[in-house]
Simulated scan of single mutants.
Amino acid sequence: MAFGSLPATPSLTLPESDPLVHGFVILAFFVHAIFMNLVVGGTFVMVITEAIGVVTARGDYRQLASTLANWLPGFLGVAVVLGVMPLVFVQVLYGPLFAPTVSILGDHWIVAFLAAMVGYAGLYGYSHWRGFLEQRPSLQLALGVGISVMFLGVALVFVSASVLMLHPEQWENVRSQGFSAVLSLPSLLPRYGHLMLAAMAGMGIFLVCYGLFLSPSGQAFRDEDPKDRYATWVRQYGVAWTLTGAIPQIVVGPWLLLSLPSFVRGDLVSGQSFGSLAFFLALTAALLSLVLLNAALMVPQARGLAIGGMLSLVVTMCLMMIVRHAVRVTWLSQQYETAALGAKDQWTVFFIVAIMMLLGVGLTIIMVKAYQKRVRVE
């Protein structure tokens, strides 16, 4: 579809999907979002941790930053592989909206992919040149900040595409005024802030899991043991980052809710739909997680508090994935006529991509096992 022929209010045909398809859409995005959060939030956390280590000369921070630097390239590779399926689902289900949106954001879309590749290379350089970079902390931090900014920019472009596809009436304005017109869409900034804070919270949850892994439950805590002290510190540090991402949502969440159209907001708080039920359950789980995580921050030796807070927040994130999809379905179904699409060709594309994704995941697992074997031999 050429830019010059884009209608201001296009005539669209959208699919009515069965519950199984909706479940696949939510699951595909959730799996991708896990690693996406680890990359976007993890890069930011790594840079801040590195900076604290440089300024304070504390070995715990430098050690954790080094660990994150070794993990993040792998996380990004998995996120890219798992990100194919959500894009395929969106294209299959909402092609009349998604394809023109990508075309309108063409230049930014291309720059985003280039930035992702450069960031990928930067993460590898940050890890493999660590010995060289540690002798030049200013250069190390500058490289880390540059990588983090790239990933934040990539996330902004993807969020912009997700929001712009819900506003086809704004396509002509964006085409004529540029990216500034996208930034003026009511729900863009709160949605972007919501996701970036969720990325920090997700990385915090991962650090809590890592700290729990470092101190198995069958072993009693020994304050004189450096490994136990480090594991407890990692858990506490992870809880702090989780709260850093979760507490501001108290402001950003209502901002995002109020930015939605009235009919979408009304459906979400009506208590009469599955998305509404997920929304209120997510709020309850979020409040529980804040209470438990705050207690875990004050009593870091209490593993149960950290585990309970972490699990509550994971449940919150799962439910918010459902809410996110419910918002999109409500938004589109109440504005455009829905009709079933021919499934033959669409399912063919789906199965081809699914097979490719499984092959990619299998190859990733083989490479990880080969790397672990090499490390054990060395």
Rank of each mutant, 00 (worst) to 15 (best):
S259D: 10
N173A: 06
M200R: 14
A57P: 15
K227C: 11
V45K: 12
G178D: 05
T232Y: 10
R229K: 15
V163R: 00
A370K: 05
M150H: 09
G202W: 13
P15L: 03
E16C: 03
P19C: 09
L287F: 11
R303P: 13
Y210M: 15
G95V: 08
D223C: 02
M298G: 13
S276R: 01
S162F: 00
R62A: 02
L243S: 15
M46A: 12
G275F: 00
P100D: 04
P300N: 05
L133Y: 05
G74H: 13
L293Q: 15
G83H: 00
F98T: 02
F280I: 01
P73C: 03
H325F: 02
Y124E: 03
L27C: 02
F263S: 12
R235G: 13
V269S: 07
W71M: 01
S162P: 02
F280Y: 11
V54N: 07
P96K: 13
G202Y: 15
M196A: 10
M200H: 10
L166C: 03
Q63M: 10
L185F: 04
L133N: 04
V47H: 14
G211I: 08
Q219P: 06
V377G: 07
L288V: 13
S187Y: 03
V299Q: 13
H128G: 10
V47E: 05
A28S: 11
E172S: 11
Y192I: 07
